[in-house]
Design a protein around this nucleic acid. Structure first.
Length: 470
DNA sequence: CTTCCTTTGAAGCCA
DNA sequence: TGGCTTCAAAGGAAG
């Protein structure tokens, strides 16, 4: 039922996702967790450190420790509760109640529903389309809109445009190109916007229109120390801005919406190129997939490539660096070997793995955690996020699993021939020596929290991370 | 400048 | 099939 097409083959609903729920009997106990909802972040941090202590005292090292026993929502913080409430009130989001209780068998919403039998957009859908996209896309748009935006972020919804709407009405339009922005794509900042960033806007926070998270309102630029103006209501707080970059705000739809002046995606020498590797041609299956889910005018032409020349952000062309370095003095003297290497790299851009559920969660919540505590080191932040992840309710996690599934799906459509293996440096089992010097019986790096304390000057006796108050 | 740290999950490979 | 490995993000720390 999940899939419109009978699920026939959505093998993307990873089994592991189920496993993840399966093995977490802990999740069951969370039902009674509300009583603990009052516990704040301090406890999160405390338990984080506690875990290390416990691990020290206990020789058991297994997964049970890595995945702590059921924790009745100990880590649910007030903010999240309020967010949940807001989300519930909202009822407009993708994950309306009930939020996929049966996940992972819950799939994409019926995308065709917003369309009337004659193929035109239903009033509801139209309404959504008319809503300025920037204005909290996730909060105001139907699942269709969100999914369409994910699938075809190039839809310039905000523009709103008459133009876009008109174009959308024109079923004869040969390609999505007519509804895309003509802004120039630029190079993606490595740490800026994930290609599929729009997915992140599913955050509950973003489901509350016009109410940016309090902790971000008076945000301070971590690097400059300059207080940032409150994020405009139409801008995701997860896209930090410096005072002069308003015009360069990464579009919430992230990866395909071109930005001016803001590096988003790599461009090749010509300024424009085929946005996707030639392997990305929309094959028959994809075409039928799309056709089954979208009105004809939404389905990309078979020749495959986006007409915008905007590459998928998952593509990280080493060229970005190369170009800058090549422009340097020594570039002309690069050896033939290097040239051939570069040629190879050109031919084979690095396509990143799609983000998994936890990665999506991290991406969304990192800023919040950073804002809530003084920590900036990702290792420490990730520990906290890991704990929070486990503290999430089943439904909340399901959101991210669903998003991740969509990401994989989209990724697979964009890069049919891609394999995770492609990104293995030097091939599997070789290269990239990861430390991973964990002994078989050793738990998950008992020293990590210690390191954390040491690094951040925390009280060795205390289990409480002062700076973080988590 | 590169690698590590740290998290979870996806995916690939090998026995 | 289970176990192991790598990579995805992030940014400070360390080498």
């Amino acid at each position: 039922m999940p899939q419109l097409n009978g699920g026939g083959g959505d093998d993307l609903g990873a089994n592991d996702e189920m496993i993840s729920f399966k093995d977490e009997g802990e999740q069951e106990e969370k039902i009674s967790e509300n009583s603990a909802a009052e516990r704040d972040l301090a406890e999160v941090k405390s338990s984080l450190v506690n875990e290390s202590e416990t691990q020290q005292n206990s020789s058991s090292d297994s997964e049970a420790e890595r995945r702590p026993p059921p924790r009745p929502d100990t880590f649910r913080d007030k903010s999240r509760d309020s967010l949940e409430e807001a989300a519930k009130r909202q009822e407009g989001g993708l994950f309306k109640n009930p939020a996929y209780p049966g996940y992972p068998f819950i799939m994409i919403p019926d995308l065709t529903s917003p369309y009337l039998p004659n193929g035109s957009l239903s009033p509801t859908a139209r309404t959504c389309v008319n809503v300025p996209l920037d204005l909290h896309l996730a909060s105001c748009c139907s699942p269709l809109m969100q999914y369409l935006q994910m699938k075809w972020p190039l839809l310039d919804v905000q523009a709103g445009s008459l133009q876009s709407r008109q174009a959308m009405k024109d079923a004869r339009s040969p390609s999505p190109g007519h509804i895309v922005s003509n802004k120039v794509p630029v190079v993606q900042h490595p740490h800026h916007v994930h290609p599929l960033t729009p997915l992140i806007t599913y955050s509950n926070e973003h489901f509350t229109p016009g109410n940016p998270p309090p902790h971000l309102q008076a945000d301070v630029d971590p690097k400059t120390g300059i207080p940032r103006p409150p994020h405009p209501p139409d801008i995701s707080p997860y896209y930090p801005l410096s005072p002069g970059t308003v015009g360069q705000i990464p579009h919430p739809l992230g990866w395909l919406v071109p930005q001016q002046g803001q590096p988003v995606y790599p461009i090749t020498t010509g300024g424009f190129r085929h946005p996707y590797p030639t392997a990305l041609t929309v094959n028959a299956s994809m075409s039928s997939f799309l056709s089954s889910r979208f009105p004809p005018h939404m389905v990309p032409p078979h020749h495959s490539l986006h007409t915008t020349g905007i590459p998928h952000p998952a593509i990280v062309t080493p060229q970005v660096k190369q170009e800058s370095s090549q422009s340097d003095v020594g570039s002309l003297h690069s050896s033939k070997h290097q040239d051939s290497k570069k040629e190879e790299e050109k031919k084979k851009p690095h396509i990143k793995k799609p983000l998994n559920a936890f990665m999506l969660y991290m991406k969304e919540m990192r800023a919040k955690v950073v804002a809530e505590c003084t920590l900036k080191e990702s290792a420490a932040i990730n520990q906290i996020l890991g704990r929070r992840w486990h503290a999430l309710s089943r439904e909340e996690q399901a959101k991210y699993y669903e998003l991740a599934r969509k990401e994989r799906q989209l990724h697979m459509q964009l890069y049919p021939g891609w394999s995770a293996r492609d990104n293995y440096v030097g091939g599997y089992g070789k290269k990239k020596k990861r430390k991973r010097d964990k002994q078989p019986g050793e738990s998950n790096d008992l020293s990590a929290p210690k390191k954390c304390r040491a690094r951040f000057g925390l009280d060795q006796q205390s289990n409480w991370c002062g700076p973080c108050s988590l």
